[in-house]
Design a binder for these strands. Structure first.
Lengths: 188, 188
DNA sequence: TCACGAAGTCAACGCCTGTTGGCATAGGCT
DNA sequence: AGCCTATGCCAACAGGCGTTGACTTCGTGA
């Protein structure tokens, strides 16, 4: 079969996202991805150079966090929760990153970058003390990643069964507390 | 060098836990594990039969959840939080399982079993409606797994920096709400 | 028309993996 | 002392992987 280069490249990207999302970086093979598209593995190399570069191309994205300070302060957790749920549902990129970063130190580092450059600054606008802001952002990330892990990776049935609204209703107040309410104090 | 079979077996298990925890199931190789112990890869096969059986032997454990109904109802979240933090810190087994279950469907299934047979029944004792109990347990699992993911796998600096007490103080109230307080209602 | 570049195939390479069977050897038991 | 078994090593296999370079085929523009 003969297609335009752009078409083929896009087909490869689609198949790659699917395989990476399902199997993770290591187990997803160039051969399987090429097979899904119906072309020779060599084509993937021609268009993307290497498996690493293909992965990078398949996981480009932007958190595009809303400006949290703009919204009403007391609905902040809900705004963030809704935004993240939409993000996870909307594209496979974050799911792919999450799954593969469990075994790839480089990808874990990339998740750190995402955290540090996208979530942390937004939270820092709400809290004067930078150390406290980091901890608050860290806990918020833990809650968000935890839901994503259970829903898309581990596929725990109750968490998979929930719809967007219900998840937001559960984690909204949690994020609200992590981001803006009284700092945790040590308790025995 | 010559040791007793029991000693060697134990050394292999120690090295295996370390490699599995650091690299995940796929990237941890029998050769690397054997090399760490200073023996031939064939010895690993002699003692454990296969890589899969070695992994199974390296990840035996027991959640041994406390009886939540026994404690004071209003400290329930804190009790569970403290218990889980101790569990994660105390052994590598859960960290290994968490890391590797991201790419291995069989292990994800095993995490489901852990959830269904150990956490869920405990929560079910607190809530009459089984469907609601499942959702509550699911959210609690999401929070606990999320912290573990950020702390041991992704190694987000602020989450790594926290000590046991601080983590318990943060997620204690969250678990409390997920397990026993007013069910979430849909909110726009 | 025909040559040329783009799109795709093919076979092979070098490497690493889990796994196997045969061979050496040390050390306790009789 | 001498055997015999548990402990360990070595070399090799078969298969899968990413990657490479040379070859074929199609479509188009001069």
């Amino acid at each position: 079969m003969r297609r335009s280069a752009a078409e083929t490249k896009e087909s490869i990207l689609r198949a790659a996202r699917e395989r990476f999302a399902l199997d993770g970086y290591d187990r997803a093979t160039i051969r399987a991805i090429a097979g899904e598209v119906g072309i020779d593995p060599a084509m993937v190399m021609r268009y993307f150079g290497s498996k690493e570069r293909l992965f990078a191309a398949a996981t480009e994205y932007d958190l595009s966090l809303p400006d949290l300070v703009a919204g009403p302060a007391d609905r902040l957790g809900f705004v963030l929760a809704a935004h993240f749920v939409d993000l996870w549902e909307g594209s496979e990129a974050l799911q792919i990153l999450l799954r593969s970063s469990a075994t790839d130190a480089g990808l874990a580092e990339r998740m750190n970058d995402i955290f540090a450059t996208q979530l942390l600054p937004v939270v820092a606008d709400l809290t004067p003390d930078p150390d406290e802001a980091a901890r608050r952002a860290g806990m918020a990330a833990a809650q968000v990643f935890g839901v994503a892990l259970c829903r898309y990776v581990l596929r725990l049935p109750p968490v998979v069964a929930m719809d967007r609204e219900e998840i937001v209703a559960w984690i909204g107040p949690t994020l609200q507390r992590y981001l803006s309410e009284g700092a945790a104090v040590t308790t025995t």
